[in-house]
Design a protein around this nucleic acid. Structure first.
Length: 282
DNA sequence: CGCGTTTGACCCGCGC
DNA sequence: GCGCGGGTCAAACGCG
C-alpha cells in the first residue's frame, strides 16, 4: 500500500493546498502539548490506563487554512446568495463554525428535496486538527467528551474502517475520526477537528481521567512514548512531504525533523518557532 | 423512550 | 466529463 498511500497522502497534502503550510507539530514535550491542548479547550484522557492505551504521538494542525477557506466560503456564499440560498440566508455565515445544519425539517424547511450532505456552494471547512496515535486495543478512546458516531467508511488500502464521531453537545461542532493503522493494527489514529465550546462531561463509565487535574482532564502525554512510525502517517502530509522531496512548504526542515523533535524537544525553541503567535495568544 | 450505533445512499472535491 | 474516494446524512435498529 505504501506507494499508493504515500502518493495519496501527498496529494491530499497538496490538494489541501497552502492550507497546511503552517502546520505545526510538537512532540515529546508534555508540558507544551498540554498547554497547547489546554489553549484549545482540549482535555485529553490519560494515555495509559487500564485499557492499555498509550499515546505514541501527537500533532496539531494550524488553522491557517481555515481562515482561507472561510474567506473563500464567504465569497462563494455571497456570490451564490443571489440565486440559490433564498431559503437559507446563513449560508455565508462568517462564523468560525461549520454548522453541519441538519435539514431535518425542524426549522420549518420542507424536506421536499432531501439533499444529503452540504448545501451546494457550501465548502467543507476544516478546522484545527489534532491527531494522536495511540496504542490501544479499543478503537474509541475516552477523552472526556461524549461522542456520537455518525459514520463509518472503509479506508482504501486498509483492512480497517474509519469511524466518524461528532461531539454530542449540540452547540459543539467538534468531530473526530478514528482509524487503525494498517501498518500496525495495534495503533489507533485519532484525529480531532475543531474546538470544544464546553467542558468535559463526567463519564459514568471508565472515568480514567481526573477532573481535578491541572488541565481539567488530566492530560498525561508521555514524551517517552512517542512513536516514530506514527510520524509517517499522522504527519503524513507535511512531514513525509517535507522529508521525501522538496515541498512547496515554507517550513524550515530543521523544525520539521521528527526524530529531532522527538528525541530532543528543546524547551524553548520549538513552540516559539512553530506555533504561530496568534495561537499562543489565544 | 431516549440515546447511540449501523449502514446504505448521497454529495463533493479532485485527479485523470 | 467521469470515476474514485472521503465525508456526511438519516432511517432503521439495538440497547439500557
Amino acid at each position: 500500500m505504501d506507494d499508493d498511500k504515500k502518493r495519496k497522502l501527498e496529494s491530499e497534502m497538496t490538494s489541501d493546498s497552502s492550507s497546511w503550510v503552517d502546520s505545526s507539530y510538537f512532540f515529546g514535550n508534555e508540558e507544551r502539548e498540554r498547554s497547547i491542548l489546554n489553549e484549545f479547550g482540549w482535555n485529553l484522557s490519560p494515555l495509559q490506563n487500564e485499557r492499555n492505551q498509550e499515546t505514541t504521538s501527537f500533532m496539531e494542525f494550524d488553522d491557517h487554512q481555515i481562515e482561507l477557506e472561510q474567506q473563500r466560503s464567504d465569497l462563494a456564499g455571497i456570490e451564490k446568495s443571489g440565486d440559490a440560498s433564498t431559503s437559507n440566508p446563513s449560508v455565508s455565515s462568517s462564523s468560525s463554525d461549520e454548522l453541519p445544519e441538519k435539514s431535518t425539517g425542524s426549522d420549518g424547511k420542507p424536506p421536499e428535496k432531501p439533499s444529503k450532505g452540504r448545501k451546494k456552494g457550501q465548502k467543507r471547512i476544516r478546522q484545527q486538527r489534532f491527531a494522536f496515535m495511540t496504542k490501544s486495543d479499543v478503537d474509541h478512546l475516552e477523552d472526556g467528551y461524549r461522542w456520537r458516531k455518525y459514520g463509518q467508511k472503509a479506508v482504501k488500502n486498509s483492512p480497517y474502517p474509519r469511524s466518524y464521531y461528532r461531539c454530542t453537545n449540540t452547540k459543539c461542532t467538534v468531530k473526530k475520526r478514528v482509524e487503525r493503522s494498517c501498518e500496525d493494527p495495534a495503533i489507533v489514529i485519532t484525529t480531532y477537528e475543531g474546538q470544544h465550546c464546553h467542558h468535559t462531561v463526567s463519564f459514568p463509565r471508565g472515568s480514567v481521567f481526573s477532573h481535578e487535574g491541572p488541565f481539567g482532564g488530566g492530560l498525561n502525554l508521555s514524551s517517552s512514548q512517542i512513536y516514530a512510525p506514527a510520524m509517517q502517517y499522522t504527519v503524513s502530509g507535511p512531514l513525509s512531504v517535507t522529508q521525501s522531496h522538496q515541498p512547496q512548504l515554507e517550513v524550515r526542515p530543521s523544525q520539521m525533523q521528527p526524530q529531532q523533535t522527538l528525541q530532543n524537544p528543546s524547551d524553548e525553541g520549538l513552540l516559539g518557532d512553530i506555533v504561530p503567535p496568534g495561537m499562543r495568544n489565544r
